[in-house]
């Protein structure tokens, strides 16, 4: 266990309580809505915010433990941080920015600049050494920030919303490069993001933090398949229902009963993929057991596909083709029949 932390921080009325363990070479993404405490978590790990309770232990060395009155100042933690918006020093060149860390840790000027140039070279930035940060593109600035954090030889790497400052057009390629550089880092790495695409591309494991708490964690596949909060379901584009299971019957809060193929009992979550929701203009015949009549709330067109948000009694989204929308004469408020096969409802304990 390389990073082992139980972070309890109080910020006015806000409480953050997150436990996490990250192995050497592992990248964990902390994913969650803005204001959920992600940045506070990074700050606490970096020593920029002291804990109220809990501990931060890196390679067996305690960095923060209020009960033992231990607090290691940020400048004495071997912790590289890539800040949101990167926080590059505007009065220094790219090379001087990267050399700042080694210089601060007592490396001679010549060695520090040598090391900085090496890192810039590794990041494909050799030509920018004498530029000031305001002359860099978003992707370059991100790599300088990463080089600056790595040049100190940190044991722990923290990235706070590394993609947030980038133009939409540059994202995919920058994300790919960042992923490559993170793979090369030997220690534990924590990436904070609100974008599931970043989390999926960069991380081995996800930690979903909402309102100061971990609501779910696991590999991308685990979290995607079985979301446990509306936020996660929405991120993954899934319909999440909550209800009580009695055998293969699922009773929703409003009393509506759906037929499932999973034998379960008690409080459960049920997930339905929008593409598994079929829409009809008249009552369909045939096998689906779950068929109901409803109205269209909203239609979101995404190219050739459309997400159709349905109203009561089962407020879920259906994903259909744009042609289907016109064929069925769908519009906001239009009546429609919906159906879902019992085998396409996944049920798991709440």
């Amino acid at each position: 266990m390389s990073l082992d932390a139980e972070v309890s921080v109080t910020l006015g009325p806000f409480e953050l309580n997150v436990a996490l363990r990250v192995d050497d070479g592992e990248v964990v993404a902390v994913l969650g809505p803005n204001g959920g405490g992600k940045t506070t978590l990074v700050r606490a790990l970096a020593g920029l915010h002291s804990l109220r309770a809990g501990h931060v232990t890196l390679d067996g060395v305690v960095l923060d433990d209020p009960s033992a009155r231990i607090f290691v100042a940020p400048e004495h933690r071997q912790c590289g941080v890539v800040f949101q918006d990167y926080c590059l020093f505007a009065h220094l060149t790219t090379e001087e920015n990267v050399a700042f860390g080694p210089r601060s840790r007592g490396v001679s000027k010549a060695d520090a600049h040598h090391r900085a140039l090496e890192w810039l070279d590794t990041m494909g930035l050799a030509g920018t050494a004498h530029l000031r940060p305001d002359r860099l593109s978003g992707g370059q600035a991100q790599r300088v920030a990463l080089a600056r954090a790595l040049a100190t030889g940190p044991r722990l790497l923290l990235l706070d919303e590394p993609m947030a400052a980038l133009d939409a057009g540059a994202r995919a390629s920058v994300r790919h490069q960042l992923g490559r550089h993170l793979e090369g880092f030997a220690g534990p790495c924590v990436v904070v993001t609100h974008d599931p695409l970043d989390a999926a591309a960069l991380a081995d494991r996800l930690l979903i933090v909402e309102d100061g708490h971990v609501v779910q964690s696991g590999t991308l596949a685990e979290v995607t398949a079985r979301p446990r909060t509306a936020y996660v379901a929405e991120l993954m584009g899934l319909n999440l229902l909550r209800g009580r299971a009695r055998g293969t019957h699922l009773v929703l809060a409003n009393g509506t009963t759906l037929q499932t193929s999973v034998d379960a009992n008690g409080d459960v979550f049920a997930v339905i993929a929008p593409r598994d929701v079929a829409l009809y203009s008249s009552p369909p015949g045939g096998s689906p057991r779950n068929t109901w009549s409803t109205r269209v709330d909203e239609i979101h067109r995404l190219g050739t596909r459309a997400r159709v948000l349905l109203g009561a009694p089962v407020p879920i989204a259906a994903e259909v083709t744009s042609e289907a929308v016109s064929d069925l004469g769908l519009g906001e408020g239009a009546p429609v029949w919906a159906s879902v096969k019992a085998t396409q409802i996944d049920v798991y304990g709440a």
Binding site: G47, F83, C87, G101, S104
Partner: peptide, 23 residues
């Protein structure tokens, strides 16, 4: 945050002031 960034890079308070705040 710029001063904090300097701190995470290993700069003590005086160094942060001299090399980040003052400039």
């Amino acid at each position: 945050r710029f001063e904090e960034a300097a701190a995470t890079l290993g700069a003590g308070r005086w160094k942060v002031f001299r090399r980040v705040t003052l400039p």
